[in-house]
Design a protein around this nucleic acid. Sequence first.
DNA 1: TTGCGTACGTGATTTTTATCACACAGATCG
DNA 2: CGATCTGTGTGATAAAAATCACGTACGCAA
Lengths: 234, 234
Amino acid sequence: MSAAFLKFALLNYNFAHYLSTLKPHCMDKYRYMFKDFEEGLFAELKSKGRIVEAKAGQSLLESGQYIRNTMIVLEGLVKLFRESDEGSEFFMYHLHPGESCALSLICDRNVRASSVTAKAVTDAVLLVVPLEHTENWMRQYRTWYHFVVGTYRRRYEELLETIDHIAFQNMDERLEFYLRRHQKALNSNVLEITNTQIAQELNSSREVVSRLMKKLSENGKVRLLKNGIEILKL
Amino acid sequence: MSAAFLKFALLNYNFAHYLSTLKPHCMDKYRYMFKDFEEGLFAELKSKGRIVEAKAGQSLLESGQYIRNTMIVLEGLVKLFRESDEGSEFFMYHLHPGESCALSLICDRNVRASSVTAKAVTDAVLLVVPLEHTENWMRQYRTWYHFVVGTYRRRYEELLETIDHIAFQNMDERLEFYLRRHQKALNSNVLEITNTQIAQELNSSREVVSRLMKKLSENGKVRLLKNGIEILKL
DNA sequence: TTGCGTACGTGATTTTTATCACACAGATCG
DNA sequence: CGATCTGTGTGATAAAAATCACGTACGCAA
């Protein structure tokens, strides 16, 4: 790996392809997302961070990867998964613009392997900041500390909610929860997702999802389109 | 002092109400747990914190409760649960001496309702610090920041591990994991836990646990004692 | 001692979920 | 056009787990 690559220190190899295509810095248009950040902090975000674009479906972080950067979503939607030993990917939660992956914030100086997988759902723009800077910000900028603490709290609670569903509910309820979550995250009643993909993310099987989906459509809760699902009332 | 009063005092108000019945401050003997803390920080722990004792089985924090204090375990073992709507309590993880509940650290100034339940497994001693102090420490003491960040990382990863097991594994493997976790936490091969309790904490049923436990004993992995389980090799 | 409460063991049955087998529909590509 | 690839729908069956219906054992207190 070249020194140049390490200097930019992106999250994984995939980013390497996009380095040359990086936009010039134009963080100012994202200022509104970080309203409460001090000017000094925002200036640091601009100077220390790099803007990176990712294509829909692209993997941003893979299980076992080392985390050297904090990653903040500026545009688009990112999905986080937990990976099983056999490779199936269990859906945990979404990251929206202005949000950050908890894992990438917490890893202070020590380089740590990640235990989750991140994927861009839509085309996405990310701000990537080497961890050595963000650890300093933690002590210098009160609003950064709040950002980190708030991120952690939200991620933690979303994980708890996920646990509720796998621990306490049956597949039919879990499927409805999955659909509602995606409806909300994509802000759309039409989800272009295959049953196969849903089954993988719920760690179930295609046939089961197919049958449950049929039941949902019989109950008028969804309508099955040729390549997607329209949510009517959930 | 009645159990009802204790519960009331612990949960609804700052632990202050029955502080008079507690031991005098003797934090110095716990200094070794916080080796890396600056002297100033430790002094603050001593002056701002209160030492509280809890009896085995006592509830320390209930779902829906407001969190006004950071809670650090000094002695004993504490267990954390996620509660379902129907009231069943799903085991999340243990807190050992020197560890803290992530939720109680993160709630900055805003008063927040907790979404988990904590119970003392053994008789326990806790250090309780009002949140208004700990938020300041976050910016003043580098080692406190590390403590909080480390706590969060560990709790988050333990939650992820829990998710792995409910999402990807069958009850037999989950039971083994449960037993190993408790063996480690209690540092004992003999667990005085009833099958009924295990079933509740795994959100399964007594009969299922009973049958699986029989299988484990047939395979020589555990020995069933009259009031407990001896772990042989897991 | 008897009675009661709590925990346990186990067969039978049902529910839920996963798996297997196979047919079909639409897209793509040479 | 046929071959192939993906995604789907569905019946049959199997496996996992939950539930029901018992009977048993032990501690404890009236």
